[in-house]
Design a protein around this nucleic acid. Structure first.
Length: 310
DNA sequence: CGTCTTTGACCGGCGC
DNA sequence: GCGCCGGTCAAAGACG
């Protein structure tokens, strides 16, 4: 992964134009006032520029750190698969699923970086995303090697012990276990909307980040989304169906790009969409956009371009 | 009263 | 074969 957008020409935010605005001393008083106003504006722009550069530096540093950690994790994963000695804190990584957990955590760290980018970017940017409101719904979907298995990462309140991931479907909890590699319990859910639906869901807090819920979907829904606008939706009092953010079994990823975004826009434009649905769709679109390098480049260009506007 | 959650027991796969 | 561990079952209780 490259950070080529950081080298974008429009990201050269160095403002050294103050000296070119000096006026001859024989100007009228109103012109002096105008010059002062312009200088004040320049000062504000310079401060803004300074803050933006600090944010960029922090983001690059975070990215470098996480990339190094990712490389370490990948190397240790290879080591444990080729050698008997394991240094994993989870103990003996003898089982195949442990290797998968390592990959999962790596993806988790990349998502943490993406979330940090969203948060930092919204502090000063004129582009605001509802996902920065920290409502516990920053999500990303990672495709797994196996078909019909998908993972969903949901940021939630660390103090919230409920393992509920609102994805628009109706789930029935049928078990809970404390696994060896994670002190947080893992909850097992089955789709309760259709009795014949074989989709299962496992939800567990991340061992590294208690504020991150990891939902693993297995199987494929053989019915529509219960909370889809216009669709039949039985009352689900305990688990308020919010937005059908994705169909887990289809392994559609929000990172894929425009087709999903266009679909979300169409859903957003639907007059029958509930406020919760629209909010969640906006959140998903924001996450999707922040994972798009082209969008980042355009955003950086817009920010830098705006600063030089009169 | 129907549905859902909780939780201990049970089952099967895997490694030693 | 035994023990560990993840996943599932099912009875009991909670809730609206």
């Amino acid at each position: 992964m490259e950070v080529a957008w950081l080298n974008h020409p429009s990201l050269d935010l160095d403002l050294s134009i103050g000296s070119s605005l000096r006026l001859p001393p024989a100007k009228a008083e109103d012109e002096r006032l105008e010059v002062k106003a312009l200088e004040a504006e320049l000062d504000r722009a310079s401060d803004e520029n300074k803050r933006l550069k600090e944010m960029l530096a922090a983001m690059v540093a975070s990215y470098s750190t996480l990339r190094n950690q990712m490389a370490d994790l990948m190397m240790s994963s290879n080591d444990t698969s080729s050698e008997g000695g394991s240094v994993s804190p989870a103990g003996t990584n003898k089982r195949k699923r442990d290797a998968g957990a390592t990959i999962l955590d790596s993806a988790h760290q990349y998502q943490a970086l993406a979330n940090a980018a969203v948060t930092n970017g919204n502090k000063r940017s004129s582009v605001e995303s509802t996902s920065s409101e920290d409502s516990g719904c920053k999500r990303v979907v990672e495709e797994c090697s196996k078909p019909k298995i998908s993972k969903l990462y949901v940021r939630t309140d660390p103090s919230d012990s409920s393992l509920v991931v609102k994805d628009g479907y109706q789930w029935r909890k049928y078990g809970q276990k404390v696994t060896r590699d994670n002190p947080c319990p893992r909850a097992y859910f089955r789709c309760s909307f259709a009795p014949a639906c074989s989709v299962k869901k496992k939800v567990q807090k991340s061992a590294d980040d208690p504020s991150m819920l990891v939902a693993t979907y297995e199987g494929e829904h053989n019915h529509g989304q219960p909370s889809q606008p216009g669709g039949a939706l039985p009352a689900a009092p305990r688990q308020s169906g919010v937005a059908p953010l994705q169909t887990p079994a289809t392994n559609k990823t929000v990172l894929d790009g425009m087709p999903v975004k266009q679909q979300r826009v169409q859903e957003l434009e639907s007059a029958s969409a509930s406020p919760d649905l629209r909010r969640s769709l906006v959140e998903q679109m924001a996450v999707s956009l922040t994972n798009d390098p082209a969008f980042k480049t355009a955003l950086a260009a817009a920010i830098s371009g705006r600063m030089f506007q009169p």
